[in-house]
Each structure stands twice: as structure tokens, then as C-alpha cells.
Design a protein around this nucleic acid. Structure first.
Lengths: 209, 209
DNA sequence: TTGCGCTGAGAACGGTCGTTCTCTATCGTA
DNA sequence: TACGATAGAGAACGACCGTTCTCAGCGCAA
């Protein structure tokens, strides 16, 4: 039995009512998983309620509509992607290797259990015909990736034409891996990227063969 | 006024009741356009009825369900794709150029008004979480493309590893062009393919520069 | 002309969707 | 202890979905 006179701000365990910030996160976490696994339109708000453990009313107090939740999930995925890329890149000192680190990052992702392709590409396929804001967000996300690759290429001293080529390889690897259900596309894209980089940067310093 | 005693098999114009074969084609043509433009789930059967000009009852006599129509559209698009590729390839005698013809085919397609990406990739994004048959069809379609590229690579005397690399470039060009809303990805993928082919086949016979 | 079978137009059905509303219970404050 | 505000649980709402059914009308064989 708890002391009825105790402070109300520090009960020990028990399912406490989450504050708004963590409630938002509960919703977004559940939405991310459900939307990514089965598609946005296939997941109803009732399922989102059950998965988040929050009453529907609360969800609608935190978000104005389902579409707003979708956009928030996209935003969150975008941040995850950017963080993943910049982390993969940050741990690689050599500028040439840094370009290839993108494909190593893809390889680890493809091997994740539950990998089902790029959420942005999937959402584009599902919603681009009906949700212009989603389309625009996906477009911006992909443009950002192009920009990131362009920056890495510039840092490696490569010509500007190399950047979109490397980006296309990454996009192709994502759709190929998703549809085929295997992760080998990452390695194939990486090998192709190596060839392109070698051709663009001239003979490499330290490669055998 | 028509002669009331005339044969019933050759009235001149007037909207005649189409036979089953052409009725099927009316449905599939309308479904193809609508599904491709706005997504499968965004198009209701009533809209399909209006666009095809056929009564709903007739549509359901021709097809058991909406999903069957989707599958038929996928089948038709698959045939169009195969025909487009093999036509682009057939008109190109040189085996090396034949590989590049794939990207020229993509370029023409991307420039089509109303291009909205690869229907298979889009359908995968929209339906892979809920319609296993669609997923399987898309998988088979993409596997078929991989096989086609592998055959072309073999005919050009290239190593087997080259094929998936070229296929990934084509896939990446499709998603990139669709999402960016521009067609430049085709040329970029073509340029990358040239580099990869040159690297794989050794120095080319007839290139300047 | 009569009757039969099939037609098209559209209403109807059962279900699900995103969203809102009702109703009761609980909470913090006096 | 009493009160006003707010919470949660879930029913309800209106719209729309894919699919089926109703029903009047037409063409055609006898």
C-alpha cells in the first residue's frame, strides 16, 4: 500500500499516464512500425490506438489528423536516415572510402530483420497520387540525399557528374533489395560505385590487383 | 432512319454493346490509366465503371474481383515492358550499344507526359504489405528484368557481375526520375553504365577522347 | 403476341475508414 | 466533502469501399 499522503510526482512503477511528449513518441513509434510494415492506408487509427496504448481522443489531441502523423513519421525517418549516413561517413577518414561507406550503411540496413524497402519510396508509390504534401516531402528527402552525395564527391575531388550516378546506384539498390527480398544489391551497388569512383578519380593509390 | 428489317450485325456507328473481349480491354485500359495515375487504392470500382463506360455488373462478370483487375493490369504492363525493351534492343546491332539501349528506352519513357514512375515499384510500395500476389508478381517482373540484362551482358561478352550493376542503375533511374519529376536520371544512369561497361569489357574499339 | 433470359442502371449491403461525441470516472483544489 | 475541469473508453457518425441484388426493359425464339 502506498502512503496516501506521498507526493504525486514520483510513484514507483505502475502504468503512469505519459506526458504529452512521451505520448507523442508512443504514437510515432507505433505509427512508424505499422506504416512501414504494412503501408499507411492499410493501418487504421484504431490499430494505431491499440499499438500505442493511448486513447483515440488523446491521439487526436496530439495530432490534428492521420496525415499529420504520417508526415511526422516521415520527418523522423528523415532524421534517422541523415544521422545514419553522417555517422557511417564520420567514422571513415578517407574521402574515397567515405563514398563507399554509404553502401556499407545500406548493406547493414538491408540485413535488418523486417527491412521492407525505403519508406520514402514506398510512401511515394502509395500516396503520391493523393497526398501532395507527402510527395513533396519525399522529393525533398531524396534531393537532400543527392546533395549529401554531391558534397561527399566534391570532398573526394570527384567531378560533379559522379554524384548523381552514385545516388542512382543507392536508390536502385534500395528498390532492388526490397523487391527481391535479399540484401545482395548493396554489395553489387558498392562494387559498381567503386568502378565509377576509380574511373572518375583516376587510378587509385593503394589497390592491389 | 434505319431499315428495320436490316441485318442486326452491321449497324453503322452508334454506341454498340462491346463484345466480351473488347469490354475486357475497355476495363483494363481504364484501370491501367487510373491505377497508374492515382494508385490502386485511391480508385474505386465506381470510378472504374464510369471510366470504362461499362456497367458494374458487366465488369464483375468479366473479372472476379478488383484484385484480379490489378493483376491483369500488372500482366499487361509486364508485356508492354518486355516488348519495349526487346524492341529497343532489337534495333541495335552492336552488343555493347544494346546494353545502353535500355537506358535510351528509359529516357523516352521518362519524357512521356504523365510518367509517374514504375508501376511495379509503386504497386510494391502500396500493396506489398497487404497483397502477397501482387508482391510476388512484382518480384517476378523484376527478376525477369535482371535475367534480360544478364543475357544482354553475356551476349556482349561481359562478366556476370556486370549485369546486376546495370540493372540496379536502371531501377535507380526509375525511382529517381519518378520522385524528382525530371527525366535526367536516364542520361545519368546511361553515363554510369557506359563507364561500368568500359571497365568490364576493356578499352573500347571505337571511342574518341 | 407471349414468354423467357439476359441486360443495364443504380440502389442496397455489410464492412471499414477517419473523426467526433457521449458518458462516466477521476483528479486537483478549496 | 464538494466541485469544476478533464480524462478515458468506446459508441456513433457520415462517408466510402468492394460486391451483390433488385427491377424494369429489351431482344429473340416460337
Amino acid at each position: 500500500m502506498r502512503d496516501p499522503g506521498a507526493s504525486t510526482t514520483d510513484r514507483p512503477a505502475a502504468p503512469r499516464r505519459p506526458d504529452d511528449a512521451t505520448a507523442r513518441e508512443l504514437v510515432l513509434r507505433a505509427a512508424d512500425r505499422l506504416f512501414y510494415d504494412r503501408g499507411v492506408q492499410a493501418v487504421g487509427m484504431d490499430e494505431l490506438r491499440a499499438a500505442s496504448g493511448l486513447p483515440l481522443k488523446r491521439i487526436y489531441r496530439l495530432f490534428p489528423s492521420k496525415e499529420a502523423i504520417v508526415e511526422e513519421v516521415l520527418r523522423h525517418r528523415h532524421e534517422l536516415w541523415e544521422a545514419g549516413i553522417s555517422n557511417a561517413v564520420a567514422t571513415t577518414p578517407d574521402p574515397r572510402e567515405r563514398l563507399l561507406a554509404v553502401y556499407d550503411f545500406l548493406a547493414r540496413w538491408f540485413d535488418d530483420e523486417g527491412f521492407r524497402g525505403c519508406f520514402f519510396i514506398n510512401s511515394f508509390g502509395e500516396l503520391s497520387g493523393t497526398a501532395p504534401r507527402v510527395t513533396e516531402f519525399v522529393r525533398a528527402h531524396k534531393a537532400g540525399f543527392q546533395k549529401t552525395v554531391a558534397r561527399l564527391v566534391a570532398e573526394a575531388g570527384g567531378p560533379p557528374e559522379l554524384a548523381p550516378q552514385l545516388a542512382i546506384l543507392a536508390e536502385g539498390a534500395q528498390t532492388t533489395a526490397a523487391i527481391a527480398g535479399t540484401s545482395e544489391a548493396a554489395g553489387q551497388a558498392r562494387a559498381a560505385a567503386e568502378t565509377l569512383i576509380d574511373a572518375a578519380l583516376g587510378p587509385t593509390r593503394d589497390r592491389a590487383v
